[in-house]
Computed example of a mutant assay.
Amino acid sequence: MGDGLARALWERYEPVHDLVYFAPEARRAADGLGLRGFWMGYFALRAAPLGPVPAPVVTSCFYVFHPDRVGRALPDAWAYAAPADVLAAREEAMDAALTRALGPDAATGGLMAEAADLAWEAAAAADTAGRVLGAANQALDRPRQAHVRLWQALTTLREHRGDGHVAVLVAQGLGPVDAMVLKSAAGESDATLLRETRKWDETAWRAAEDRLRARGWLEEDGTLTAAGAAGHAEVEALTDAAAEQPWTALGADRSARLADLLEPLVTAVLGTGLIPSGNPVGLTGVRRASPPAGTAGGTGTGRG
Rank of each mutant, 00 (worst) to 15 (best):
V57F: 00
V57P: 02
V57R: 04
V57C: 03
V58R: 01
V58N: 03
T59W: 00
T59M: 03
T59S: 08
T59K: 01
S60W: 04
S60M: 04
S60P: 05
S60I: 06
C61E: 07
F62H: 05
F62S: 10
F62C: 05
F62D: 01
F62T: 06
V64P: 00
V64K: 04
V64F: 00
F65H: 14
F65S: 12
F65C: 10
F65G: 01
H66Y: 07
P67H: 11
P67D: 07
D68Q: 13
D68C: 10
D68M: 13
R69C: 11
R69Q: 07
G71R: 15
A73I: 11
A73G: 09
L74P: 13
L74G: 07
L74R: 12
P75M: 09
P75C: 13
D76A: 15
D76Y: 10
D76L: 15
D76G: 15
D76H: 14
A77R: 12
A77M: 13
A77N: 11
A77D: 09
W78C: 14
W78N: 12
W78T: 11
A79T: 14
Y80G: 08
Y80T: 15
A81D: 01
A81I: 14
A82M: 06
A82S: 10
P83F: 11
P83A: 14
P83G: 14
A84T: 14
D85A: 15
D85Q: 11
D85I: 14
V86L: 09
L87N: 06
L87I: 13
L87S: 03
A88V: 12
A88C: 06
A88R: 13
A89K: 10
A89Q: 07
A89H: 07
A89V: 14
R90E: 00
R90G: 07
E91C: 09
E91T: 11
E91L: 15
E92C: 06
A93S: 14
M94I: 11
M94T: 06
M94G: 05
D95G: 07
D95R: 13
D95K: 05
D95F: 08
A96N: 01
A96D: 07
A97M: 09
A97I: 07
A97F: 04
A97G: 08
A97Q: 08
A97L: 10
L98N: 04
T99G: 06
T99Y: 08
T99M: 06
T99F: 01
R100T: 07
R100H: 10
R100F: 09
R100G: 02
A101V: 12
L102N: 08
L102G: 04
L102H: 05
L102C: 08
G103T: 04
G103H: 03
G103W: 06
P104K: 11
P104T: 08
D105H: 13
D105S: 14
D105L: 14
A107D: 00
A107W: 03
A107L: 11
T108S: 13
T108Q: 08
T108D: 08
G109V: 02
G110L: 12
G110P: 07
L111P: 02
L111D: 10
M112S: 08
A113P: 00
E114Y: 01
A115L: 04
A115Q: 01
A115T: 12
A116L: 02
A116M: 05
D117N: 05
D117W: 00
L118D: 03
L118W: 04
E121H: 10
E121C: 05
A122K: 04
A123M: 05
A123H: 03
A123N: 03
